[in-house]
Structure formats: C-alpha cells, structure tokens
Nucleic acid binder design. Structure first.
Lengths: 137, 137
DNA sequence: TATTGTTATACTCTATAACTATA
DNA sequence: TATAGTTATAGAGTATAACAATA
C-alpha cells in the first residue's frame, strides 16, 4: 500500500474522530445548532472581520452557494451581521454580533480541548511541527 | 487564536483541497460513481479482505447503518462480494471482485497522485514524519 | 444479555448551473 | 466581459433509534 494512501486514510480517520468528539460535546454550547461547518464559518469571520463573503468562501474552500444559505441561517439566528461595502457595492461584508462572538469563543474552547486530547500522543515539539507543516501546504 | 484552532482549520482546508482535486480527476476512472467515501470503503476492504462489516465500520470510523446502504450499492455494482462467515453466523465477510480490485488500483493511483502534489511543499523526510505522526494518533 | 447487521427517517453538507447586480 | 452574491435543485454523507437474527 502506498504511503500516500495510508496518509489519506489516517487523515480521514483523524478528522472523523474530531468530528465525533465534537458531536458529543458541542451540543452543550451550540444551542443554535450551527453545526461543525457553521462553526468553521464563524471562526473564519472572527479571524478577519469585517470580511467579504468571497474571502470566507475562499478561505474555507467551499462553494459560494453553500455560503449564501448558511449565512442566511447564521444571520437569522442573530450570530452574524451583513452590511454592504461602500467601496464596491457588489460586496457584502460580514461581522459577528456579540452573541456570535460569544459562541465562537465557546466553540473554540471545546474544539481546542478535543484537538488537544487527540494530539496527546505527540510531544509538544511534534505538535508544533505538525501545525507548521500543514500551514505550509 | 489558539494553535489548536489553526490546526483544525488547516486540516479542514487540506482535506477539502484533496476532495476537490479528486472530484475533478476521479470521474475518468470512477465510472461506477462510488464517490470518495465509497472509495475509502473499498480501500479498507482491499487492505484486509476478507473482512467483516463490523471491522470496516470501525476502521473508517463511520456508522454501521451507513455501511449497510453503501455496501448494498457497491455490491449491486459488482465491486464487492458478501459471504456469511462459518465461524459466526451473525458475521458477513466482505471481499473485492476482480472489478472492485481494478477500481481500487485505479483510484489509488489517482489519489496517490493528488496527495503527492498536495504534499509537494514538504521534503521527503517531512512527509515521512507527517505520516508517522498521524499514524500515532 | 450482548453483538452483527438491517431498515427507516430526518438532517446536514455538497455540486452544478442559471440568475441579478454591480464593476 | 468579469466578479459578488443569490436561488433552485438534486444528490451524497451523517446521526439516531428501532428491529431481527445469532451468540
């Protein structure tokens, strides 16, 4: 079996484990039921708000049509604010409401804990190396 | 932003990129349209055939009810064979048909290529280290 | 009583293409 | 002509619980 295939399988399993762990813990906090993918969007907005829909779409690597729908949901739940850009009137800028900000922090704390546990078999230096490598990809 | 969150985002993006690349190249080979998840099941069977449904479910980290449906599809397409175990009559053993085997090899070659490209920014030693770390998790 | 596998159902996420509006 | 965003629709993947057969 090629190394590349093993890598694909281990990464898939890794993601899966995190996903399942989150599913068990996130509900306590995620009362709005944004889901893991909704969480990812909120994180991405939090990083660089105000940010255009286009930028969030690119950073998360998803499709813009999905973004529209999910954002509509996040907006309806009072987590995200849209406002038109004055520079380019095609652009919509996104930012978090205080409620959205609080949710991001709560979700990050849970996700952080899950990742920390999952990475436990690695030394701290290895964890740093892993992150550095992934960021280079 | 915590390192853990950055890790989650980079891993998510990494998986996403591979997924998208595959989607563009796999159709040439995946005439049965098993999809990435169907491919993962086939790979897992290929590794250890004949293998019980339960074992494949565990190794892929998915749910058994999903397995049932996907296996039914793979069987209908003539890629997978089921046969009852003689040791334990609750157990169903899975193996690949020649057609399934050929598909696995074709898909692996494509996936291998995609992963290789994606990992290009890393040195060969780093790639080995990455795989080794992931396997330890 | 526990385990293997199946069925049913509802839900989330994804892909594609056609569309509007601004630039 | 190109880009930002929306809409519509179909399909793939997932979670949950209830169930039958075997151990």
């Amino acid at each position: 079996m090629h190394d590349q295939i093993r890598l694909a399988q281990t990464v898939d399993r890794f993601v899966r484990r995190i996903h399942v762990s989150l599913q068990h813990r996130a509900p306590e906090v995620d009362t709005n039921r944004v889901g893991p993918w909704g969480g990812m969007i909120l994180f991405t907005i939090a990083e660089a708000q105000p940010v255009s829909i286009q930028a969030v779409t690119q950073r998360t690597g998803r499709d813009k049509s999905q973004m529209t729908r999910k954002l509509k949901e996040l907006e309806a739940k009072g987590l995200v604010l849209r406002e038109g850009s004055e520079m380019d009137r095609r652009v919509t800028l996104l930012s978090l409401t205080p409620k959205g900000q609080a949710l991001v922090e709560a979700l990050q704390s849970i996700l952080g804990g899950v990742i920390e546990e999952t990475l436990e078999p690695l030394s701290s230096a290895e964890q740093d190396a892993l992150l550095e490598m992934l960021e280079r990809l």
